[in-house]
Design a protein around this nucleic acid. Structure first.
Lengths: 337, 337
DNA sequence: GTTGGCTGTCGAAGCGCTTCGACATGTATG
DNA sequence: CATACATGTCGAAGCGCTTCGACAGCCAAC
């Protein structure tokens, strides 16, 4: 394992000079710099992470807390994780992966040990027990998601309220007057993860404004649960012609069941999904959808975090504006018969 | 930030004593230990990760390289990542997330800088450029996946050859004589990721042994690609009654298309999938499937790695035996008409 | 030609921890 | 009773780096 001292010796300079070449914190003559850089190349030197962390009090690591459950919006999580990792690398940081398992202790451990310089927290609940800790520590953090009280916190999320509104608007514009919302599993609402409620809120208030009828049903994913939910909806509101789905594992079952009932999409009923674009285009009907911009959220979170680490910028709530892409699953409402 | 020295002072012992209480590397009297532990509690002490890494030459971090693409077997990757993280924590390790993006350089960086003590590499290609580096370094590593040459490497993977054989056996036993295999996207075969070929190999050789006809078609995911593939298959082999699918994003489209063609599952055709259990149970037909044991692979990989770090156990290839779960998508072949 | 201010380099201290050898004890052995 | 040997604790060195102050050399300014 090559050390700074060896590089210094090889280049015929002192250790501190090598250090300054690496960090750029003091001016170094061009010739010296080149000589040092050449030695670094030749010897294949990599600064020792531990030593660096100890001396500089910076680990150059960002902690990323992801949810433990693997039963929900997995692709989104994965995409965010990858986007975060890639973005972090671009800023010279590595990413430490933590699962929700440890709960608040993870926050204590990371901040206490200097393992990471900052953290990104996903799957934030409305009244998350990690929030007080994050507020108390002087380590920068960014939440992906929106808790009830954002005071003193930096958050990045899709504007789910606007998302809901956008879905209703699109369907209303096409002439649909009776909408049904297929939501996440009841557990998601019970955990108060926020985003589901906010979407619903947006859906409802816009529907009210536009004079649209709207029912909402939470729904476990899968074929059987969806079958029950759909039957109930058509029982109660036979005139339903527009669907908004916010539950990845309900999408295909819904489409299959509609087909089975002889309701053509988009001729008889229209479907708008809230899901990653990839899911929307791979579905059995190319879905009109509001994308969950995982990449963007990941990149944004890292950008904010790095800004904080550099002493720029403070707390802020960034709500990403939703974008609806029209594909093949929505069309004009059928003439009332 | 509380330091070891402060704990020592608080407990009225020397720093080294505290260190030995923490590591257990020398015997400490019960009374001293308790006093120290109490001080640790009281002061909320967490050892500084950098200092520890520097002094002990151990970071207690395991690097996990995941593929950059988010277009393939995402849930499996995610599940493995979470299983690895959880298992690692149970052994006192944290996990550093790396994407394939950096390529072999990531290996150099991590081993060179002492950022991690060991690494787990996913998405291994048959002739992966990272392999020489992994063989050369004295840092332990475990591959999830199976390259062409496993000499000097430790690998964990599902036994995909046996998986293929198992699928054929199951369908043969039910009387199916004409099988079609819906494979991964052509790109997967071109990248020589191994697992797809190995499955195919198992399928073919078992089919040959049992006198079963079998066609294989690589297939991009999605509805349109699947429609084309299926049309071709039925054109060429109208008598096909058994399907093996190894492509998550082809599953739902396949089921929908079969339904559309009036072929009932499992009455007219049987379908076996190679996919995570969760996907199998959430499909529109509960699928008979061979599970991809993501959790087990992740746990196994960590266990091997920790064993190596502790100086136990050497190189080894662990192939996990496949298990086929019969669900609602397979049944007796229809009487030849 | 002295002063002042840059620029580029160096030496040394110190970050918080682990670990080695040393050294008191206390306990079994001849 | 002396010798040997665990047992429990301490002091000090050192891991590889960053960073501060010092300082040599140089140029410009009066």
């Amino acid at each position: 394992m090559v050390t700074l001292a060896e590089v210094a010796q090889h280049a015929g300079v002192s250790a501190s000079t090598v250090s300054y070449v690496l960090s750029g914190k003091r001016s170094i003559s061009a010739t010296t710099r080149q000589r040092v850089e050449r030695s670094i190349q030749l010897l294949g030197y990599h600064p020792n992470a531990g030593a660096r962390a100890l001396a500089s009090n910076r680990s150059n690591i960002i902690a990323l807390m992801i949810p433990l459950r693997t039963d929900m919006y997995v692709p989104v999580m994965m995409e965010i994780a990858i986007a975060v990792t890639t973005a972090a690398r671009a800023h010279g940081y590595d990413v430490l992966l933590l699962t929700g398992e440890e709960g608040p202790d993870a926050v204590r451990r990371v901040t206490g040990s200097g393992l990471a310089d900052a953290m990104i927290v996903m799957d934030v609940e409305l009244d998350d027990e990690r929030l007080p800790l994050l507020r108390a520590t002087d380590q920068p953090s960014v939440l992906i998601g929106l808790p009830a009280d954002t005071l003193g916190l930096t958050c990045v999320d899709l504007d789910f309220r606007a998302t809901g509104a956008l879905c209703v608007e699109h369907l209303a514009m096409l002439g649909h007057r009776d909408l049904a919302v297929i939501g996440e599993a009841p557990a998601v609402y019970e955990r108060h993860t926020g985003f589901a409620e906010r979407t619903l809120d947006g859906l409802r208030s816009r529907a009210r404004e536009l004079g649209i009828r709207l029912v909402h049903r939470a729904c476990e994913g899968g074929y059987d649960a969806m079958a029950l939910t759909l039957a109930r909806i058509f029982d109660e509101r036979p005139g339903t012609t527009g669907f908004v789905v916010q539950n990845e594992s309900a999408i295909e079952p819904l489409l299959a069941l509609l087909r089975q009932r002889g309701r053509a999409v988009p001729e008889d009923v229209s479907v708008v999904a809230v899901c990653p674009d990839q899911v929307a285009v791979q579905a059995s009907v190319r879905l009109t959808s509001v994308a969950i911009p995982a990449q963007e959220m990941g990149r944004h979170a890292v950008a904010r975090l790095v800004a904080k680490l550099d002493g720029r910028g403070g707390d802020e709530v960034v709500l990403i504006a939703p974008e609806l892409t029209v594909r093949a699953s929505t069309g004009p409402a059928p003439a009332a018969s």
